[in-house]
Write a protein that binds this DNA or RNA. Sequence first.
DNA 1: CCTCTTACCTACTCGTGAGTAAGAATACGG
DNA 2: CCGTATTCTTACTCACGAGTAGGTAAGAGG
Lengths: 215, 215
Amino acid sequence: MSVEDKRVKRLPREVREKQILDAAVRVFSEHGYHEASMDEVSEVAGVSKPMIYAYLGSKEDLFAACIRREAGLLMEAIAGGVDPDLAPDMQLWMGLRSFFEFVASNKQSWRVLHRQVISQGGPFSEEVLAMRTRAINLVDALLSRVATKKGMDDHAQKSTEAMSAALVGAGESLADWWLDHPAVPTRTVASWLMNLAWMGFGDMVEGNVWTPSAH
Amino acid sequence: MSVEDKRVKRLPREVREKQILDAAVRVFSEHGYHEASMDEVSEVAGVSKPMIYAYLGSKEDLFAACIRREAGLLMEAIAGGVDPDLAPDMQLWMGLRSFFEFVASNKQSWRVLHRQVISQGGPFSEEVLAMRTRAINLVDALLSRVATKKGMDDHAQKSTEAMSAALVGAGESLADWWLDHPAVPTRTVASWLMNLAWMGFGDMVEGNVWTPSAH
DNA sequence: CCTCTTACCTACTCGTGAGTAAGAATACGG
DNA sequence: CCGTATTCTTACTCACGAGTAGGTAAGAGG
């Protein structure tokens, strides 16, 4: 009569898929794509291996599904934290804060996403690179808007894309550094990068710092 | 009688080791550690598999040897291009130029090094992380020197390590971007990053740019 | 010409892990 | 109470790739 024996049995597909994805994110984030085994995923998920293949397809498919879900969450978090009517520097500021907040509360998601960004090879690299490109374009839209308004010359205009790539890379790297120094508050990390991006290091040592209040 | 049949035979160990390492760098840079097979390395090297094991040890050993060699080259190139008696901003500038020059003329080396920076898991991650940490410390030494001289407060002092991590990440990311945009000259890429680091984006749009002449 | 070392190869073993076949158990509609 | 669709498992197959056993041949030194 008791429904709770040892394993909860015969749950609807939706629920199982979520459990599997959660387990996959965890396992992939711990070992990376190649070192992770489907057997471990199935064990962590509390479900036998054929279920995974039935519901989510091959290992690559499963990984792609993880990336898509987590990338969606990250992008959503950032987009939701930014008001597109604000001035560009404020938008950048809000975006950075949202990003670091996401990383702080979703370390595993971040690891899965960032870990495989570089190591190409698999067909899933498209998936991952796509989301990185989206991030760069997002920043580029901001920067080039500023550049145009301020009337930078053509040569400098071209540089905004490269700058965006650099900024995104700086953000990723800083996020990684932060994982090893969790004592630093979110706001502080975000402001460091904001200042580096907007004022540069040279200005900072002169005491010129960007603050959200003085828009 | 002819000594040149098809394969050059019976070369001394030194030469073979170099051939193998060259092949390994190429194969690892193309596929990444896991997707690369020892069979392919042996094929590219023009040497049978047991030779690799006899000379360089296991797959991990071989990979570690690659990393060590290429990281050594990179660090040497940077150290050789920087005069430690110059002002910090000039040192940073020279370092950046040397770095991008190295990437331009050693794309494969760069790929091997950078590809695996993130994806932890293997025991070789120590090897790779070590060289990244060295790079960050190098930059940090510069930045904190500036910060101390200029008398930044304690809070800001602490930030130099994080800043260095961000800068290194920006450099890596920009180098990757550059691989897809080879038309841009080395000097230009270096100056973009230099300006971002020293002046920030906000200053650049105002027309304030750092140039090597006005030290 | 004999011996010892070093360079070198063919042809294997064998663990591991992705993917599957075949069917058991449970709900549910008629 | 009977078919039928869905959930779920045990117990396999099978390819691939790291690592090796065992042996050949070529030069060096006597």
